[in-house]
């Protein structure tokens, strides 16, 4: 027979040598020791949502009572998995517990303070924004053109996550965004008059 066990082990020997070499080289290269650790896109977006809850002031009328929870909604197919829950676990917004709700229709946003509209709804985003236009609701999404379509806060994703804020929508709204957040975000439509 052509291939003796010796022949096969010969190949394995070569493979082992190569693997060792790769490992040693990998150890020498500027590797994870100096690199910034990466994150999942939606883990970062969940952290942003949590920050929005912290850096935006909602008027009292947005809450039923002093102990009512702060409600974050996800409209459409949920891209966060468990990361939103993991982010808000054990946290409070000005003493209020945080509740997360998921729904597929605009009606589900009743009682929400912050709603993330999933990219799955990109086809009907204009219609959704019409229905969701409430002065105490902050709309957030990461689909292209969301801020232009009238959404309040848009995520811009490349190798990092950026935020854009719609100035016109903000003027119509009764929430107050902290100047710190405004300073760090791109503010769209400062010049244009409200529709």
């Amino acid at each position: 027979m052509m291939n003796t066990p010796g022949g096969f082990l010969g190949r394995v020997g070569a493979g082992r040598w190569l693997a060792c070499l790769l490992l040693v080289l990998a150890g020498l290269l500027p590797g994870p020791a100096v690199a910034r650790p990466l994150s999942r896109e939606y883990d970062v977006k969940a952290a942003f949502l949590y920050n929005f809850a912290m850096f935006i002031d909602w008027p009292k009328e947005a809450f039923a009572g002093p102990d009512s929870p702060f409600v974050i909604g996800v409209l459409g197919t949920d891209p966060f998995g468990s990361s939103l829950e993991e982010t808000v676990a054990g946290e409070r917004v000005k003493g209020r517990p945080i509740v997360i709700r998921r729904f597929s229709e605009a009606a589900g946003a009743q009682g929400c303070h912050l709603v993330f509209i999933s990219a799955s709804e990109h086809r009907r985003v204009k219609e959704l924004l019409r229905v969701l236009r409430r002065p105490t609701l902050v709309t957030v999404a990461d689909m292209p053109g969301f801020v232009e379509a009238g959404g309040l806060i848009g995520f811009v994703t490349d190798t990092r996550v950026g935020i854009r804020i719609n100035a016109a929508a903000l003027r119509e709204s009764k929430v107050l965004i902290s100047s710190k957040l405004l300073r760090l975000a791109q503010v769209a439509g400062m010049e244009t008059s409200p529709p």
Partner: peptide
């Protein structure tokens, strides 16, 4: 991530 400041989050590389 949630312990980061907004500045740090904006600088955070994502996949």
């Amino acid at each position: 991530l949630k312990r980061m400041t907004v500045e740090e989050l904006l600088a955070q590389p994502v996949t």
